[in-house]
Computed example of a mutant assay.
Amino acid sequence: MEDIQDILALDAGFVEMFTRGTAIYWALFILLRLAGRRDVGSMGVADFLVLVLVADAAGNAMAGDSTSVGDGIIVVATIVGWSVVVDRLGYSSPLLRKWLEPRRVLLVRNGRIVARGMRQEHVTRTELMAQLRLLGIGRLDEVQRAYIESDGQVSVIRMSERTDGETSTLEE
């Protein structure tokens, strides 16, 4: 049986594993950002399959020929580290946030579908109606605003009973 030092010994070295982890993290980040929020926000069987295949391919690319637990720990720490850095940068810098996180897109305004937003996000009328039904909305004219958020979820502001002209404080 191998002793713990052999198991944790670095096969490829810290710099190589850090570089591999960094390269794969940013390549996947950019690819997923370009893929669009709908593809990331919901997960069907095909989406899950792509996730598993990407994880396997990325794992092989990050590890190379390494079989060391130590090398694996470096890669995992690198990925978690980049995730924390990106999260903190997005929080503290509005300028970077617009590049790191997609803005919400308007899909419905005052009970009418916004075709531009639907096209931009490749959302069909059927998909939108299904999301509205899941939120307990039976008719389009009940919706003041509907957005696809940065995480791919649909959010809705219902028509209010007020007639005083006030707007929602939830809209930016």
Rank of each mutant, 00 (worst) to 15 (best):
E16D: 13
M17G: 11
M17H: 13
F18Y: 13
T19V: 14
T19W: 08
R20P: 00
G21T: 01
I24E: 00
Y25G: 01
Y25T: 01
Y25Q: 03
W26S: 02
W26G: 03
A27D: 00
L28K: 02
I30F: 07
L31R: 01
R33T: 08
R33Y: 02
L34E: 00
A35M: 14
A35S: 15
D39G: 09
V40L: 10
V40Q: 05
G41R: 07
G41A: 07
M43Y: 06
G44N: 15
G44V: 10
V45S: 09
F48P: 07
V50P: 00
V50D: 00
V50L: 08
V52Q: 04
V52D: 02
L53K: 04
V54S: 00
V54C: 03
A55W: 02
A55L: 11
A55S: 14
A58H: 02
G59A: 01
M62Y: 01
M62P: 00
G64E: 07
G64C: 05
D65S: 03
T67P: 01
V69L: 09
G70V: 06
G70E: 04
G70L: 05
D71G: 04
G72P: 07
V76N: 06
A77Q: 03
A77T: 11
V80T: 06
G81W: 02
G81I: 04
G81H: 06
W82V: 03
V84P: 07
V86K: 08
R88Y: 06
L89C: 09
G90L: 08
G90S: 13
S92N: 09
S93I: 04
S93T: 09
S93V: 03
S93K: 12
L95P: 03
L96M: 14
W99L: 11
W99T: 07
E101S: 10
E101G: 04
E101I: 12
P102K: 09
R104Y: 06
R104L: 05
V105G: 09
V105L: 09
V105W: 02
L106H: 11
L106E: 00
L106D: 00
L107T: 10
L107R: 12
R109F: 12
N110R: 14
R112W: 07
V114C: 03
V114I: 11
R116Q: 14
M118D: 08
M118L: 13
R119I: 05
R119P: 01
R119F: 11
Q120F: 03
Q120S: 15
Q120L: 13
V123F: 15
V123T: 14
V123I: 15
E127G: 14
E127A: 15
E127P: 13
L128S: 09
L128K: 10
M129L: 15
M129Y: 14
M129N: 14
Q131T: 12
L132M: 07
L132K: 15
R133Y: 07
